[in-house]
Simulated assay, not measured.
Amino acid sequence: MKTDLKIKSLLLGVTFLTVGYVSAQTEHTTATQQVQTAQSSSPEIEALQKQIAAKPDDTQALVGLATAYQNAGDYASAITTWNKITALIPDWAPAYYSIGYANQSAKNTDAAKSAYEQYIAKVKPAEVEANKQNLAYAYFFIAFMDKDSNPEKAKQYIAKSLQYDNSNQDALTLSKSLMN
Rank of each mutant, 00 (worst) to 15 (best):
M1F: 06
M1W: 04
M1G: 11
M1Q: 08
M1P: 05
D4N: 12
D4S: 13
K6V: 08
K6T: 08
K8F: 09
S9V: 00
S9C: 00
L11H: 12
L12A: 12
G13F: 11
L17Y: 12
L17N: 11
V19Q: 14
G20R: 10
A24I: 10
Q25R: 14
Q25K: 15
Q25D: 13
T29P: 04
T30Q: 11
A31V: 08
T32S: 15
Q33S: 10
V35K: 14
V35L: 15
T37I: 09
Q39W: 03
S40H: 09
I45H: 08
I45C: 08
Q49L: 12
A53M: 04
A54I: 00
A54T: 11
P56S: 11
P56C: 05
L62A: 09
V63H: 00
G64E: 05
L65F: 03
A66G: 13
A66P: 07
A66I: 11
N71D: 14
N71M: 02
N71W: 00
A72N: 05
G73M: 09
Y75S: 08
Y75K: 07
A76C: 00
S77G: 05
S77C: 01
A78S: 15
I79M: 14
T80E: 15
W82E: 09
K84L: 01
I85Y: 01
I85V: 15
P90C: 06
P90V: 06
D91L: 08
W92L: 07
W92A: 06
P94D: 06
P94E: 05
A95W: 04
Y97H: 04
S98F: 06
I99N: 01
G100S: 10
A102G: 08
A102V: 06
N103K: 07
Q104W: 10
S105Y: 03
A106M: 04
K107R: 14
N108V: 01
T109F: 13
A111Y: 04
A112W: 09
A112H: 08
A115K: 07
Q118G: 04
Y119K: 03
I120K: 06
V123K: 04
K124C: 06
A126H: 03
V128I: 15
A130N: 12
K132Y: 03
K132T: 07
N134T: 12
Y137R: 09
Y137F: 15
Y137P: 00
A138E: 01
Y139C: 00
Y139K: 00
I142S: 06
F144G: 06
D148R: 07
S149M: 04
N150E: 11
N150D: 15
P151E: 06
E152K: 14
A154G: 03
K155F: 05
K155T: 11
Q156N: 10
Y157S: 02
I158T: 07
A159E: 13
K160A: 14
L162H: 05
L162G: 10
Y164D: 02
Y164A: 02
D165R: 06
D165Y: 04
A171T: 00
L172Q: 15
T173S: 09
T173H: 02
L174G: 03
L174Q: 05
K176D: 11
L178R: 01
L178Q: 02
